[in-house]
Write a protein that binds this DNA or RNA. Structure first.
Lengths: 227, 227
DNA sequence: CCGTGTCAGTGATAATGTTACAAAACTAAG
DNA sequence: CTTAGTTTTGTAACATTATCACTGACACGG
């Protein structure tokens, strides 16, 4: 149960809530709740039943697949204002969650019971648009993952990863090799080896927990497969 | 434009059409059409704009990604009564189609303009259920593909493929190595090599365009990763 | 300063990707 | 029934990635 004021505040963070019709607003106020989970919390595990849907207000969630030997691959991330289509899919078809979801930061979310969500999708166009919008984004994500894993070489993928990361951390990326491996679905050794090569080529500079890009252009050319 | 009788016939093949409300039926009759495409027709190409949605009446469509050097990987197939969520996704978000779709058999389909489909999804619960049901199936498909490509060994994947194929063709699978490679996202040589090994282990018998399974149990144990 | 855990480096071997070519099996035309 | 052309398969050789098994480096609390 939320308060009217809370709902008002949420509308700032989740603009599509403002588009919902009044009946639905009341539903959300009546049956919704807020939850805050600390960094590292496993939200869903492979095979979990989904009887609630979370809409992220602040924070970030990583959804990944676990392979045998502890290998992982990230499928996508859920950011503010989004929610998890795998959960939606699981709810709407009464299946279990086919992956693992973990909070990468402290994450705050609006929690809705599954049947409330079902009703929202059926009766409220704003929610439908929201839901289909998410489906689109995720599908695109996942297709990209398939393409990448199936066709691209690891050095290219690592270069791409570093360049993307460097946008958020322009003066040095703080990350372990293991994290990169989990991201890309390979082993730490492979990452270490290729990073070492990059260092020999003077594209990057390595230290513990840290990677500095020193030749951005050359790294870019790896991605574009020119070199 | 369809006739009322045609619509009646379609209801047999596409049961959910019978659940649509009357307004929507009229919409479909008015704006829908039928199309038949021969085997091998490329229906969508990477980057195609989607302004119609096809619901398959008979036939089969393969949706795959093309990599550089002509490598392919199958993402999923569309069978009778289904339609393509990538098209749906492209329509609902005004994006282009992110893969290639080709008719594997002569395929007959009900064609709906994009805006009619949008309206159907918004106004008709039967269509919404149909659409979400498809989304679920495909998501599960695609996640499985990611998992498989990222974590499984090629011999296991080939064994699995052969066993699945053998259900439809119990006394010998008729297929080329290249087709298998396109299915699994690898090169023909890799398939040939591993099939040859399987033959040496007396799991299968190879001839041109043909694979016979002669030790089903051992092949199964490859899949289950016991051996 | 010393353990203990986390992180990175590296060698060895197997599996898969990639390139290149040739042999074999089929097809169709003469 | 041959011959030429096409499709399918075999295989060698080398590159890249996966996998296993360590060692060494660093960080932090005691």
């Amino acid at each position: 149960m939320l308060s009217e004021e809370k709902y008002g505040l949420l509308e700032n963070e989740l603009p599509f809530l403002g588009l919902a019709n009044n009946d639905m607003k009341q539903k959300i106020i009546q049956h919704g709740s807020l939850a805050k989970v600390p960094k590292g919390t496993v939200i869903f595990d492979e095979g979990s039943e989904c009887n609630t849907l979370a809409v992220i207000i602040t924070g970030k969630i990583r959804v990944y697949k676990l392979g045998e030997s502890g290998k992982e691959i990230t499928i996508y991330r859920i950011y503010e204002g989004e929610s998890c289509i795998l959960t939606i899919s699981a709810i709407l078809s009464n299946l279990t969650f086919p992956a693992t979801a973990v909070a990468e930061e402290e994450t705050e979310a609006l929690i809705l019971p599954a049947d409330v969500f079902k009703e929202l999708v059926n009766k409220d166009e704003a929610w439908r648009n929201y839901t289909f919008g998410l489906v689109n984004k995720r599908l695109a994500n996942i297709i990209t993952v398939v393409e990448t894993v199936a066709f691209k070489r690891m050095d290219e993928r690592i270069a791409e990863f570093l360049l993307k990361k460097s946008e958020a951390e322009p003066d040095g990326i703080n990350i372990t090799h293991q994290k990169i491996a989990d991201e890309l679905g390979t082993h730490r050794e492979v990452i270490s080896r290729i990073l070492k090569e990059f260092e020999k080529l003077e594209l990057i500079k390595l230290s513990r927990n840290r990677i500095e890009i020193i030749n951005r252009n050359e790294l870019l050319s790896k991605v574009k497969h020119i070199a």
